[in-house]
C-alpha cells in the first residue's frame, strides 16, 4: 500500500501491515518515537494491533535539540 510518511509518499512492502511492522522496517523499535496517524496520536500499546490503511498520513516524531 501507499501511505504518506513524514510528508513523503511511501510505498510499503506487502509484509508491512501494522505500525509495529512499519517501525521495524525503519529500525525504530528501540528508539524514542511518537506515532501520529491522520492527526491522531497512537498509543504504544496499540502499535502491534493497529493496521495501516491506504493513504494514511503517518508522522514519526521525536525530540531534537532546541531552545
Amino acid at each position: 500500500m501507499i501511505i504518506q510518511l513524514n510528508g513523503k509518499e511511501q510505498q510499503l512492502p506487502e509484509n508491512v501491515v501494522t505500525v509495529e511492522d512499519l517501525l521495524h522496517l525503519f529500525a525504530l523499535n528501540n528508539r524514542i518515537v511518537i506515532v501520529e496517524i491522520n492527526k491522531n496520536i497512537l498509543r504504544k500499546e496499540h502499535y502491534q494491533a493497529h493496521l495501516l490503511k491506504e493513504k494514511d498520513k503517518v508522522e514519526l516524531i521525536h525530540f531534537v535539540g532546541g531552545g
Binding site: F26, I32, E59, I61, H62, F63, V64, G65, G66, G67
Partner: peptide, 20 residues
C-alpha cells in the same frame, strides 16, 4: 533541558540523538 519536537529523519542514515 528544552527540546524541539520534529519529524524523525527516517530516510537518511541515523544520526546520534542527544535525548536518547
Amino acid at each position: 533541558l528544552t527540546f524541539a519536537v520534529r519529524r524523525m529523519n527516517i530516510f537518511e542514515e541515523s544520526q546520534p540523538n542527544f535525548l536518547e
